[in-house]
């Protein structure tokens, strides 16, 4: 049996979809101005580029088979991504409940997402990576069609310069954006599944993320302005002002594509979480059940996107699992190999 391998482009797209999913469930109630958020995203991308260095280096070693995490540490990663999967499902269920209350109850939505994601995780990383490219195309098509039939007009007066008043928004978004960059620990884990070029995947993802989300934010600022706060979900809001004779409203189409992405991204989290379990089917069942349980608990408890513990947990995960652990692992490996050479 050939070992499963994915390409750098596929990985970059997967990481991008994970980030985009997170942006989708980012809920705003007070959209003061797009500029601090856009600058916050730019600053966060720069910091992420630095934090990516150890992860990319570790991924390189993984490709060559020179790095492997000890099982307890690996389980920490699994736990982290199970929580992220649960959080994603819970927040998506919340979105469904708010915007499409008659469609499916949140509890059922979480169970169904876990089921579908569990199945996709069982299908393996290669299937998810290939499907990721299709979902990416779907997104692009949806985005372009929404822009094409948007009834909004660009109001360039909405694009204000950054002032001191915007600093709290800037720092808040910078913190939120950094805490949402768990694609760095994902790179650490997915390095071993990569054929080559982890740096290309990492920086390709960052470039893609920066361009796409900045464009989306710019469009939202120019077209929707503070009405975004009324709709709550910025990217979803873009479809709320699009209309055509053929498709009267784009909101449900938007939801359809987001639901696909939510399932795919949750499947990715479950897939990488379940890797320590030898049987792929058992791993998928265990971790999708865990993610569903966490999502149900958090939904009932009323998890919010900007809840402090959730943000801190995510940020700690990014720093420790994305940067500290790979650095330590590489240092230990180097020490061991140095010792081995001396002994020899």
């Amino acid at each position: 049996m050939n070992p499963p391998k994915i390409s750098a482009a596929q990985l970059a797209i997967l990481l991008f979809l994970a980030r985009l999913m997170h942006t989708m469930i980012f809920r705003v109630t007070d959209f003061d101005s797009g500029t601090p958020i856009m600058l916050g995203l730019a600053a966060s991308t720069l910091i992420e580029a630095l934090l990516m260095i150890p992860a990319a280096a570790y991924a390189s070693k993984s490709i060559r088979g020179e790095a492997a995490l000890p099982k307890p540490v690996r389980l920490l990663y699994s736990l982290y991504f199970t929580v992220i999967a649960g959080g994603t499902a819970a927040l998506f269920a919340e979105f469904l409940h708010r915007e499409f209350s008659g469609t499916v109850p949140p509890t059922a939505a979480i169970i169904l997402i876990a089921l579908a994601a569990g199945y996709c995780a069982y299908a393996g990383i290669e299937g998810i990576a290939r499907a990721g490219a299709v979902v990416f195309i779907l997104f692009a098509a949806l985005f372009l069609s929404m822009v094409a039939v948007s009834e909004g007009k660009f109001n360039w007066l909405n694009l204000r310069p950054m002032t001191r008043d915007g600093l709290p928004h800037f720092s808040k978004y910078l913190f939120e954006s950094l805490s949402s960059s768990w694609q760095i620990p994902m790179l650490v884990l997915l390095g071993s599944k990569l054929r080559r070029n982890p740096a290309g995947a990492a920086y390709g993802f960052l470039a893609l993320k920066f361009l796409a989300i900045e464009t989306l934010l710019l469009l939202i600022t120019l077209v929707l302005w503070r009405y975004v706060g009324v709709l709550g979900y910025p990217i979803y809001a873009l479809g709320a002002f699009a209309k055509s004779d053929f498709i009267q409203r784009f909101d449900p189409i938007n939801m359809l594509v987001w639901a696909i992405n939510c399932t795919l991204v949750s499947a990715l989290y479950i897939c990488i979480s379940s890797e320590p379990v030898k049987s792929r089917s058992k791993g998928a069942v265990i971790f999708s059940a865990l993610a569903a349980a966490f999502a149900l608990y958090e939904y009932k408890r009323g998890l919010r996107y900007d809840e402090t513990w959730f943000l801190v947990f995510k940020l700690l995960g990014v720093l420790i699992l994305g940067t500290v652990v790979p650095l330590c692992a590489m240092a230990i490996n180097k020490f061991k190999s140095g010792k081995g050479a001396l002994t020899a």
């Binding site: 499916v104 089921l115 579908a116 996709c120 359809l256 696909i260 399932t263 795919l264 499947a267």
Partner: peptide
């Protein structure tokens, strides 16, 4: 389940 159901099945 509406479009949501189709999305899950499609994925």
């Amino acid at each position: 389940f509406g479009f949501f159901g189709i999305a899950l099945l499609g994925t």
